[in-house]
Computed example of a mutant assay.
Amino acid sequence: MQKNKDVPVQPQSLIILRGVTKIYHQGLEEVKALRDVDLKIADGEFVAVTGKSGCGKSTLLHVIGGLENVSAGSIQFQGRDLSRFDDVQLTRYRRDQVGIVFQSFNLMPLLTIVENVALPQILRGTPSHEALRLAGEWLRRVNLTHRRNHKPHQVSGGEMQRAAIARALINRPALLLADEPTGNLDSTHAAQVLQLFAELHRQERLTVVMVTHALEAAQFADRTLKMQDGRLHP
């Protein structure tokens, strides 16, 4: 029987959350940051999660990125349950499979831009000359070659964020997490950073999960979800 070539191939899920709950304890008070969250993210998908401050968006990124454990439920990455990872496996997951871009850039102030970008490769055990070469290639891709020997305080906020993106991607992770990546930028630099996300998503078939309170940022994503009081809504 001849196969129907018009039937689209469904992408596989890279990340699957089932019943994920995250509880924090503040004294005697119990705070549910995430409440029974179910979510599937396809390989190569760009998902934006919107919502007000304190709704649980950043917590969602932290548990997906292996930065925090869940209180209940499960998170699977490429079919493997993160809760079953030992410390070594979890460290490798965060180092090799996940890149994270923060609102506050988190660049090392005493290192140059190229040294900041090279740092994940150096921590991976790559010789420094090779790590710096790779960092130079990524700086070229984010149009920062002319800033490679500057310190973070010598460049603009938009340039710092582009350097942070290069640093997040130098290990070629399967998943890029972005936590309010335009929160500290003016509208011009924010648009440049979002355009860069869109280009890298398309060129690298990169899976991106971005949390943002800015609806204009969410328009760059393939799919937008809303978080309210720790719950996800389409």
Rank of each mutant, 00 (worst) to 15 (best):
I64A: 07
S128L: 12
H189P: 01
V63R: 11
W138M: 12
H233C: 04
K22P: 00
V31Q: 13
L61I: 08
L110N: 10
T59N: 08
V70L: 09
L169Y: 00
A164Y: 08
A118Y: 11
Q192N: 12
T50V: 15
L185H: 10
V193A: 06
T21K: 11
P127Y: 10
Q121N: 13
N4K: 11
V117N: 08
T91P: 03
S53H: 06
H233T: 12
R148V: 06
D38T: 04
V208G: 01
I170H: 01
Q12K: 14
E45Y: 02
Q203M: 03
L67P: 12
I122Y: 00
R167T: 09
T224C: 14
T59Y: 07
D86A: 06
Q154K: 06
V211C: 02
Q12N: 13
D186E: 09
V101P: 11
F102W: 12
A178R: 03
G51K: 06
G230L: 04
L61P: 04
I165P: 08
A164I: 06
A191K: 15
A190G: 15
T182C: 12
V101D: 05
Q203E: 15
S58E: 05
P11G: 07
N184Q: 14
G79E: 06
E159N: 03
S58H: 03
A168R: 05
E45L: 00
D179N: 05
L123S: 11
L169V: 00
P8K: 07
L17Q: 08
E68C: 05
L119S: 14
H25F: 10
L28Q: 13
M227T: 04
A33L: 02
M210W: 04
L169C: 01
L107K: 08
G56K: 06
E115G: 12
A135T: 10
Q195M: 07
N143A: 14
W138I: 12
R172L: 01
Q76T: 10
G125D: 09
V49C: 09
S128T: 15
S53N: 07
V20T: 07
Q2E: 14
L107A: 09
T182M: 11
G51R: 04
A178W: 07
K3R: 15
M227C: 08
N106S: 07
Q228V: 15
G230N: 03
S83H: 05
H25M: 07
D96V: 09
N69V: 05
G230F: 03
Q219M: 09
M108Q: 11
N143F: 03
P120L: 09
Q2R: 13
N116E: 14
A42D: 12
K226G: 03
L14P: 01
L119R: 11
P8F: 04
F197Q: 10
G54A: 09
I41C: 02
V20A: 10
I100V: 15
Q26V: 08
L200N: 08
I100D: 02
Y93I: 02
G66P: 08
F102K: 12
V37A: 12
L139A: 07
R202M: 01
F102I: 13
P152S: 04
Q10P: 01
